[in-house]
Design a protein around this nucleic acid. Structure first.
Length: 320
RNA sequence: GGACGGGUGGGUGAGUGGCUAAAACCAGCAGACUGUAAAUCUGCCGCUCCUUGCGGGCUACGAAGGUUCGAAUCCUUCCCCGUCCA
């Protein structure tokens, strides 16, 4: 129906430490592609070791996009990511390069591919007012308020989930419509591209082991020094990226509020939980071709390549 | 050798006669999530059976006995652990 050209894009999804970067870079070399990060934390400049950004050596000359594009006091948002990603895609299309997304932040990929409802951005003043009305205490009133504004959505959000309640109430007030109605509005899916999704799924036990090993490696690579440097550069303690796994723990170590070993254990644990949440999210992702193992594994890489090639070849003749 | 203190479910740890398969927290597992997403939140969490019910059975608070209608909780002995005295 649509006579515009449809180009393939690759999306490598999987939990943290599953080797997405390694696979992405390898595929980029094989297929003439460029890596596009899809990770909210790697977008921040200066937070390198702790977010496991691939180093320059690891990138092996492959171009990377959407990494180091935000300042620490900028705010990463799903919608903002989408805009930037579309720009990158346009550029790659012109240059006839295959986009290879390495996806840690599942929400961002979904928003990129499926679009976002037309919803207003966050409004801090409004949020402050809403929070104040709580008297700094229970979030029950938010839930009650939402029940009046949009009973349907109120049923879906736990009365204890302040973050989501705040967002829902905010949207209802700003749009003067129930959120459920706002969400029914048309979304604009990504146009002109077809996603080929590869999922990395190492055995749980192995993944956790790798999480531990990688945490140790990151500490050895100077994570602590990175945090010290960031603090010394005058970065405010409430800068968003300091919330990322590990950064608050290491800050506590530097402030002598925590022992290094305690921090190490806490980081490993938080990372395990994070990996688990990612797996939960990606499990529901449609059309993923799952591979058992790590992205750095040669066998996995060959399997990924093979499947992608079959997909690209198949689509050429299938589409009209 | 003696005197105290203690041994509770994967871990920490509450519980001092019935309301206790045993608080709470952690770990673990499952899940939700349309602009904070490395965030935020929910459920499950001894085993087992079915007619899946605020259902039944079994096993459980170091071990073995005992008291009691009823014990993780009281008594006796034993075994461990910690501290102190010789």
């Amino acid at each position: 129906m649509n006579n515009e050209k449809i180009s393939p894009l690759i999306a490598v999804v999987g939990p943290t430490a599953s080797g997405k970067s390694a696979l992405g870079i390898w595929l980029a070399q094989k297929l003439g592609g460029e890596v596009v990060g899809c990770d909210s934390t790697q977008m921040y400049r200066g937070f390198d070791v702790g977010t496991a950004k691939p180093t320059m050596e690891e990138r092996q000359g492959v171009a990377h996009h959407l990494i180091d594009v935000l300042e620490p006091n900028d705010e990463a948002t799903a919608g903002g990511y989408r805009e930037r990603a579309i720009e990158v895609l346009n550029g790659l299309c012109e240059r006839q390069r295959l986009p290879i997304f390495t996806v840690g932040t599942g929400l961002y990929l979904r928003v990129l591919l499926e679009g976002l409802a037309e919803v207003p951005l966050r409004s801090e003043p409004l949020r402050d007012r809403l929070r104040k009305r709580a008297g700094g205490k229970s979030v029950g009133h938010l839930h009650r308020m939402l029940k009046k504004l949009d009973p349907e959505t109120a049923k879906k959000i736990a009365a204890t989930d302040e973050q989501k309640l705040l967002r829902a109430v905010e949207v209802c007030l700003l749009t003067k419509k129930p959120l459920s109605e706002v969400y029914q509005g048309e979304r604009k899916p990504l146009d002109g591209w077809r996603a080929i999704k590869i999922g990395l799924q190492p055995k749980r036990e192995k993944l956790y082991e790798q999480v531990h090993v990688r945490t140790d490696a990151m500490l050895e690579r100077g994570w602590m020094e990175e945090v010290r440097g960031l603090i010394e550069s005058g970065m405010p303690a409430n800068a968003k990226p300091f919330d990322f796994i590990g950064y608050k723990e290491l800050r506590a170590v530097l402030a002598r509020e925590m022992e290094l070993e305690e921090a190490r254990a806490a980081i490993q644990q938080a990372t395990r939980r994070y990996a688990k949440r990612q797996m939960t999210w990606f499990r529901r992702e449609q059309g993923v071709h799952w591979l058992t193992g790590f992205g750095g594994d040669a066998k996995v890489q060959e399997q990924a390549l093979e499947w992608i090639q079959s997909q690209i070849a198949g689509s050429g003749s299938a589409s009209s």
